[in-house]
């Protein structure tokens, strides 16, 4: 079910001069194409920010808008309309790619709400004070460190032409365990989606914090799973 945003900034259509919200790709009055709108990726699809999305409806809307914006349709239009059809198409593609993928959608929404996540975090010189050092739980760090030690040991042994069956077994056990932890994180993320989508401002704030922590944890776990898989497969 697509919900239309009602709190948009009104702008005047370049063609018919009637005011409409700044989030729309086409004028609701004269149907003319508009310059790339100023809203977020959700509003490109006429959606409110949400984490549980109807992906079939999203895809359907993406195809519908892609067809309407297609540069071929504007081959004989004014120059500004031709430019906008390219710019709007680029925006639509970025928006769709981000929203259809669950992790990217979650990270995008959290960044939209001001969270520091991913590679942007802590890179500013002045960013240090803002960083919450307790974001990664100590027991996870211990585990990550231990497993890295084991991985290194196994790689060294390989280099020397040895194979230690015990090490192999413990790595396989570790991989299974981290796979399970990874899917638990994904489940937790999904349940926070629900909480955020349905919650009020205070509830949402708590859910946002939890999701940032879950994404951090997930990054460690997926790095580990990747490294263990590589080492086992080498």
């Amino acid at each position: 079910m697509l919900k239309v945003i009602d709190s948009a900034v009104p702008v005047a259509c370049w063609s018919c001069s009637i005011g409409h919200n700044d989030f729309t790709l086409f004028c609701p009055h004269c149907s003319k194409i508009q310059p790339p709108p100023g809203g977020d990726y959700f509003s490109v699809f006429g959606l409110e920010p949400r984490l549980n999305l109807d992906l079939a409806a999203l895809e359907h809307e993406f195809h519908r808008l892609s067809r309407k914006l297609h540069p071929d349709r504007f081959a004989r239009a004014q120059e500004n309309e031709r430019e906008w059809s390219l710019a709007d198409t680029a925006l639509l593609n970025d928006a769709y790619r981000t929203l259809k993928e669950p992790l990217r959608r979650t990270e995008y929404l959290l960044k939209l709400l001001g969270a520091e996540i991913g590679s942007d975090a802590g890179t500013e010189q002045g960013g240090h004070d803002k960083k919450d050092l307790s974001r990664v739980p100590a027991d996870l760090l211990e585990e990550v460190f231990e497993l890295n030690m084991q991985l290194e040991e196994m790689r060294m042994a390989r280099k020397l032409g040895e194979t230690d069956p015990e090490l192999q077994v413990s790595l396989e056990r570790a991989k299974r365990k981290f796979d399970v932890l990874l899917s638990e994180v994904d489940q937790d993320l999904r349940s926070q989606w629900q909480v955020w989508d349905e919650g009020d401002a205070a509830v949402r704030k708590t859910a946002q914090k939890l999701m940032v922590a879950l994404l951090d944890r997930r990054r460690y776990l997926s790095n580990l799973v990747r490294d263990v898989t590589e080492t086992l497969g080498a």
Partner: peptide, 13 residues
């Protein structure tokens, strides 16, 4: 001291 950078998954002891 065991610390980690969740940005990249680095760990440092």
């Amino acid at each position: 001291g065991l610390v980690g950078a969740p940005e990249c998954g680095d760990v440092m002891r």
